[in-house]
């Protein structure tokens, strides 16, 4: 009896047992929506913003807090393209594949990036350095074809300028003394095509 009372009191208010402060952000959203099940998507937005991607532990936490079945939460998280269950690369390159960009040959940019980095759109390089995404439409059709490299919008791109921009972003962080990326540079040198 006593035990069950403490348990039920514990769930919404106490911080997550891992002590990770990012859970506090999720808790804030949970409270804002008064733990209503309808708020699932809003809560997942917060969780993804805080953690970068939705790992299993996080989904379980959200499910418990909203008293939703696990499969329900997983079903919602995988329905929407915004949510990612995999960690994203250190750098990301989003190529707009909206109609205006497509008409101005954005597909060739995607193809060139895929060949250059050996991954498909939607994937991350095995070293975790780069994610390439093909976006629906970034709504900057006047600037077609459009590319976003690490949050920076680049207009009227070609396959060559796109690869150069991505390479620049990767090299910039390598120059900043990131051990992982300098290793990566070596391997690129060996391949010789970049």
């Amino acid at each position: 009896m006593v035990e069950s009372r403490t348990r039920s009191a514990a769930s919404p208010d106490l911080p997550h047992p891992s002590g990770d402060p990012r859970f506090a952000l999720i808790d804030r959203t949970l409270k804002r929506f008064r733990f209503q099940q309808d708020a699932l998507i809003e809560v997942l937005h917060t969780a993804q913003e805080a953690f970068g991607f939705l790992e299993e532990d996080l989904l379980i936490y959200v499910a418990r807090q909203l008293k939703l079945p696990l499969s329900w939460v997983y079903g919602v998280a995988t329905f929407y393209h915004f949510f990612s269950l995999q960690p994203q690369g250190e750098h990301n390159c989003i190529v707009c594949m909206g109609t205006a960009c497509y008409v101005k040959r954005a597909a060739e940019i995607v193809a060139a990036l895929q060949t250059a980095y050996g991954i498909e759109a939607g994937q991350t390089t095995p070293d975790g350095m780069l994610s390439i995404t093909a976006a629906r439409c970034l709504g900057s059709c006047g600037l077609a074809p459009v590319l976003i490299v690490d949050g920076q919008v680049l207009a009227r791109e070609t396959p060559e300028t796109a690869i150069a921009a991505v390479q620049l972003a990767i090299e910039a962080s390598a120059a900043a003394g990131n051990g992982r990326s300098s290793q990566l540079d070596d391997s690129y040198d060996e391949e010789g095509d970049l």
């Binding site: 299993e56 989904l59 379980i60 079945p69 696990l70 499969s71 329900w72 939460v73 997983y74 079903g75 995988t78 329905f79």
Partner: peptide, 17 residues
Amino acid sequence: TWDVMGRGVNSRVITDL
């Protein structure tokens, strides 16, 4: 226990997570 994951032709029924 069951729900559906993913969307379109890539949907699949799942158990839990």
